[in-house]
Nucleic acid binder design. Structure first.
Lengths: 335, 335
DNA sequence: CTGTTAGCGCTTTCAC
DNA sequence: GTGAAAGCGCTAACAG
């Protein structure tokens, strides 16, 4: 079933079919309904390839993501998919799987000629690679940039510094003074921001950050466990730990419980992300919620403007986080 | 950069460029390397739309999935993406979001003309809709069919009956005799199979299923909680519960702990799926692992054969499950 | 309001 | 080995 078949059956030209299908231009009600009848009867659907080739718009958006599975990513992707669906567009999913060094150009991976634009989630591409992409006229936005990138690229991220401050203010308000930070890889911008928020909150409370209390680590459970062990071995143990993501917090909590430290009586723990695991833990984890799905939706909203206007608006959006208080935090116990 | 630009720069015809890019037909080594140089230098990438239009193959596969986020789905999708990547193909993701009744044909949703085939995960389409899809010559496979569908459609699922039997044999071996089942919606084929496995294991142990001990419920935490409450109110409480998915098991465990039943001393619990939550719970959940990523990969492998041979092979694959024993199961305590 | 027509960028016979 | 040329199915001027 091609547009020509439909045209023949309806006794009109292909142009008219195109007009009916795309609701573009004037078509008499009579013709329209005749065409629609034929279409319905024969189940005609326009080929997106052909449409893409001739109009330059495919209705497909490339979404790159390091991995699909961790809920952190799948929630963002769900937000993106959701928003795109409303624009009648679909996602071409490109998990990069750390295959960045594969000899395939980013443009090729973004399925050049098949997509109208891209949403890059936590991309591993260097700022210069992203600049190349811009040069090629490819429309894209970045969600949660890994490093500082060209200011002309629209970005969406969580208010990481403010979020960290929220967490710290909560702990400080509870009376904690020795608050450790288990940070993720310091190369990530999000972590730099969270560290900034951590320090700012301490400063605001008149405290000087103790370097002994900051521990950098990979973003996983094991990293959290290692860091926590080191912190517990300190001469003067922290009364609270602010973990820069929930995985780290889980690792820390495991070690704490294994060492018979009660949470939150002996140790308060705050995570970051508020992934679904947080409320499964016992005690449930206090965590800074990132508006992940909303970040995805917002990314699409920026991208759509970009795709339509064909001009770059330098927009950098930070979405507010929310501290979700659960059972893992409480006032410090008497030593 | 189009194929014509490259041809002009290399001083050959577009046909030759096509041959070089696709490694089809003979090209002299000299010409080839000249062309490759130009391509590399100018970063040319063939437009997938144009290629799709002229060759009929787009290198894109549609993947439908009810929702992206629950890890159950994202793990399958990750497997699919993984396998497709090796075939140099990409995924067009179509979360159906229960929008099944939207007036959009399935074919349109599968982006007809943009994809070479489809992987339908737990599709909500009726058998007859799927038959229509076949009639249109669309190549697709189904992962985890919701109901019994046309036998000519290749399917991949977990060995649900056998998996249920594994769980039951474990409980029976521990000495349990009163084992309740919290099933998911009985319309789902997977649940019918699991029920079959449950009954078969009881029968093999010389026990008659007690209808009082089977409770149907939605596949969520709350459903598990409701079912467990009812079971605990029974005159003669079960000593073990086999929940047909992990969410149900979580709900059941919550209620058990809230009622001061010790797990596993007073009550053993087995889940199904072995989602990442299982090992986070305390006690960690014994669960039947479905090889989700593998199911995704296997689906692709069937689909690739289908796409290449253009003929339907009626293949129905059941992948073995594995019982992962953790802390939530143990011998029944003295009453 | 509707039809004609010229491509969009690529693959693919068929000649040479 | 390589080139010429005919589409693939659709959209978008431009006529009428």
């Amino acid at each position: 079933m091609t547009i020509r078949d439909v045209a023949a059956l309806a006794g009109v030209s292909t142009a008219t079919i195109s007009r009916v299908v795309n609701r573009s231009g004037y078509v008499s009600p009579k013709t329209r309904s005749a065409v629609e009848a034929v279409i319905r009867q024969h189940g005609y659907t326009a080929s997106r390839s052909a449409r893409g080739l001739s109009s330059g718009r495919t209705g497909l958006i490339a979404v790159t993501v390091p991995r699909i599975h961790p809920s952190y990513f799948s929630v963002i992707v769900a937000g993106v998919a959701d928003a795109l669906y409303e624009h009648d567009m679909r996602i071409v999913l490109c998990p990069t799987l750390h295959e960045h060094d594969r000899e395939v150009s980013l443009l090729a991976r973004l399925v050049h000629g098949t997509t109208d634009g891209g949403v890059l989630i936590l991309p591993e591409e260097s700022p210069s690679e992203l600049r190349d992409l811009m040069t090629h006229g490819f429309s894209f936005v970045v969600i949660d940039p890994r490093t500082r990138i060209d200011a002309r690229v629209p970005t969406v991220s969580a208010a990481n510094a403010a979020g960290a401050t929220q967490a710290m203010e909560h702990l400080l308000a509870l009376g904690h003074r020795r608050i450790a930070a288990i940070t993720g890889p310091s190369a990530l911008m999000a972590n730099k921001e969270r560290t900034r928020g951590y320090n700012a909150a301490l400063a605001a409370a008149g405290l000087t950050p103790d370097p002994e209390l900051t521990f950098e680590s990979e973003f996983d459970v094991q990293g959290g466990a290692i860091a926590a062990s080191a912190l517990f071995d300190l001469a003067e143990r922290p009364t609270a730990i602010f973990a820069f993501n929930d995985q780290l917090a889980i690792g820390a909590m495991r070690v704490a419980l294994a060492r018979n430290l009660r949470v939150p009586e002996d140790l308060s723990i705050v995570g970051f992300d508020d992934t679904s695991e947080s409320e499964l833990l016992r005690p449930a984890l206090t965590s800074v919620r990132q508006p992940l799905a909303e970040m995805g939706r917002m990314g699409v909203s920026l991208l759509m403007r970009l795709v339509e206007n064909r001009r770059l608006e330098a927009v950098h959006i930070e979405l507010a986080t929310e501290l979700v208080i659960r059972g893992s935090t409480g006032p410090p116990g008497p030593r």
